[in-house]
Nucleic acid binder design. Sequence first.
DNA 1: TTGAAAGCGCTAACAG
DNA 2: CTGTTAGCGCTTTCAA
Lengths: 343, 343
Amino acid sequence: MKTITIYDIAEEANVSVSTVSRVLNDTAPVKASTREKILKAIEKHQFQPNALARSLLKKETGTIAMILPDITNPFFPEVFWGAENVARSKGYTFFLCNTAGDYSRESEYLSILREKRVDGIIFLGGRINLSNCPPELSQEVIEMAMRVPIVLVNGNLPKSGLHRIYTDEAEGATIATQHLIDLGHRDIGFIGGLDYTSTTLVKVKAIKKKLKEYGIDLKKEWIQSGEFSVQGGRDLMNKMLNQVRRPSAVLCVNDFTAIGAIKAAFEHGLRIPEDISIVGFDDSPLSTAVIPELTTISQNTNQLGELAVEMLDQIINGNNPKKQIVLKPYLVMRQSTGPFKKI
Amino acid sequence: MKTITIYDIAEEANVSVSTVSRVLNDTAPVKASTREKILKAIEKHQFQPNALARSLLKKETGTIAMILPDITNPFFPEVFWGAENVARSKGYTFFLCNTAGDYSRESEYLSILREKRVDGIIFLGGRINLSNCPPELSQEVIEMAMRVPIVLVNGNLPKSGLHRIYTDEAEGATIATQHLIDLGHRDIGFIGGLDYTSTTLVKVKAIKKKLKEYGIDLKKEWIQSGEFSVQGGRDLMNKMLNQVRRPSAVLCVNDFTAIGAIKAAFEHGLRIPEDISIVGFDDSPLSTAVIPELTTISQNTNQLGELAVEMLDQIINGNNPKKQIVLKPYLVMRQSTGPFKKI
DNA sequence: TTGAAAGCGCTAACAG
DNA sequence: CTGTTAGCGCTTTCAA
């Protein structure tokens, strides 16, 4: 099937291609009768202009990309959902690049996206969540950002000066800790997260600080780092509970690990929250899917995506948005935390 | 920053653009020394060819799209994960189009994707999951498929002759029913799913058939249709349990509703599986996140995505793959089902 | 209000 | 092995 072009339409309507282009883009007045003829020809052939040709000329593609580590982790679809909604309203289509946390895949995608001339990139997880990102990896993104607008979500590249938007995770951890303290807990543990990711370190630090205010120590044996997954949380919680002294409450790096922790607690015959309190982080849909429902820290996941696109769009349009947006997390109290009781 | 082109490289290296193109694509032998010069120039300027220009010429973009209703439903990220993996290995990048189940958004995306000249489209949910798809909606997809390869996943458009790949949901429902029967259950109910979606109807039909083999009737009051969500499952299960006669086991349209059902059962003071058995569908990651872990039907979600891309790639390359691939689901026994006990 | 023509950046004959 | 050249399909001056 011969693909039909603007020339075919022009011929059919007895006009020049420029006129066709004009009605296509409504870019200059066209006599009503000619417009009719053209529209008719377009309709007849089901003509759709070739966006590639247009983009080549206009140097914009109406396409943005989201690079993220794991679309299977419910946190990311939530961000995507928000992002996609506002992107669509602004006329962008989304590339989704799943990297499985593999830095070389991030690089690969970065390169492909530049070739495809995306208008902008939203970057989540992976290298930007490293507490100590190797200079080459960091440099690559920074150089990229000189050519195509980039927004970092919930991450950072030191001294990069890149635009970013993130949840104040320290604040979130602080709130969660305060919540447990208010409930009377003093023996508090922390579970999950790779100990070289900033998302983990930031939280641990904030928890320590808050506890110190109350003269409480975060015991080393009660900090367990590992996978971000359900199974990870379970394993870590098992380690935690196999110790002679157990905490009466546990903060988790995300909802996944919190759920793992709940499972482990059950397996140890503990009741939640009567015997042990557990707090998640993210307020992903998961948190209401478990029993007991998870007390967790919400980070406005949809909004994170929405604002990221908003910001990206600003950069693309040459406005100079603020370099940083910080979102305040808040506590969502549900069923997995309760007052401390001496066992 | 002037974007640099193949011409700049040619000039810098004192060769013609065709030679540059040759080393870029390795499409013809080039003297080692010239290649060096060119490579050096490319490196120096960080040159990356413009994929738009190339695509315009070659009539292929290395881009495919996935249209789906709700990336927030964990079933879809699983499919995407599988799809993305093989797509990447074949050199495709993915557009992700979230439609929120809105048919007009599907149409909108269909149109945009054609303008952007994607090489192919994978379509899930929405209109292709309607037991009775309006002709206009159906026709639109069929016409689209004449211009760009389309693969339908877990859905169908009657008489369209479109390529498709799907799980044998009837088989899945049959297996699940058999499982309950084998456990001694006779009072079996069904929960969830909009009653105009084929995914719901197919299951109900299969369940009825299997039950009939054992001379059992699927009572009308024990078929509850509604949302596909956790909350939906919960509401429906509540209705179910508020009746004078309750089933001893319930089959659910997906894992979401199954989890809702579990919650409702708990709220009614029932133990699972001692007092009531519950079976999910999909074997999404959720199913091991709940307590008790869900007995469910696995539909090889990753593989669904992988094969969809495989098939799409075949069509794109003009091979003529089989029109249909059917995946066999299987039972994953976990903790939410148990032998029937007279209460 | 309309048309002619010059590109956008790249690939692929066709010559040499 | 390398260069010339004609487009791919569209937008946009510049003239008319």
